[in-house]
Amino acid sequence: MARGGEDRNQRKGTWQPYAMLAPGMLWLLLFFLVPMLILLRYALSEPTDRFSGKYELTFRFANFTDAIGDFGSQFLRSFAYAGIATVLCIVLGYPLAYFIATKGGRYKNLLLGLVVVPFFTSYLVRTIAWTTIMGDNGPLLAISDGLSLTGLLDALKITTNGGMLQTQTAVIGGLTYNFLPFMVLPIYVSLEKIDLRLLDAAKDLYSTPRRAFWKVIFPLSLPGVFAGTLLTFIPASGDFVNAQFLGGPNQQMIGNVIQNQFFKLNDFATAAALSFVLMFIITVAVLVYARLFGTDELSV
């Protein structure tokens, strides 16, 4: 009996996991790998002429170097904006997640719901709404003018010439706003998992609440911060909506360039090469980040 059961399990083991994998693998193959290969082909091609939509595969690796050479500043700007937005998301999102996880009590679900509620509106609409809020005659500037803060904000480069819309403040602010929930939720989940008795233990071992937080709670919530960082930084660095509506011509990000190359200049080769360079840089950045701050040991 036992022998037979074991054999049967082993036989099942040979094909069942693969059968279950198949739909997902097929999906990835069709909608990820194949498009990627098509994109790669474009990235290594040259157009036969400008509007025919025909590209000849010439293995023109210069597409990549051109992409970096011509749009280096937009790359740098994108990563800088995304990086600052990510840090802001941590600074704003961590205390929020901490509050909900530890003090939320029976309002936990309500509070989490409020974090997610903006998602019920379209991304585009939410972003465009900020053009009204941050507009030159909008409420935000009215408040800062009313408090005579605009001069100070100008000096701090938060506003430019008393304006906020179409500045980097607006773009970074928009990115931070739009991606904040992607930071809050994973941090919340990781905080929720932490045994709060560890906090007692730390206090019992002569730690002030501050030291208990930094030595115990924060390190243990790092997997959430890590996940939140990826969920925020990666889409933010490829984003073009915020720069398009909230930024000016000096705040355009690499996503805008790619969109422009694809849809305005019809230069699929450059656009594809840019996309690949972006993917490559993000992948490398994520790997380095994972190596430096990877916390997989903790995801017990």
């Binding site: 011509p249 355009q252 305005k264 200049l265």
Partner: peptide
């Protein structure tokens, strides 16, 4: 012409998406 337009477009878009 096609070639001219390509030049103009590229230069112009390098300004608009600076």
């Amino acid at each position: 012409s096609d070639d001219e337009e390509a030049q103009f477009d590229e230069r112009f878009s390098s300004i608009t998406t600076g």
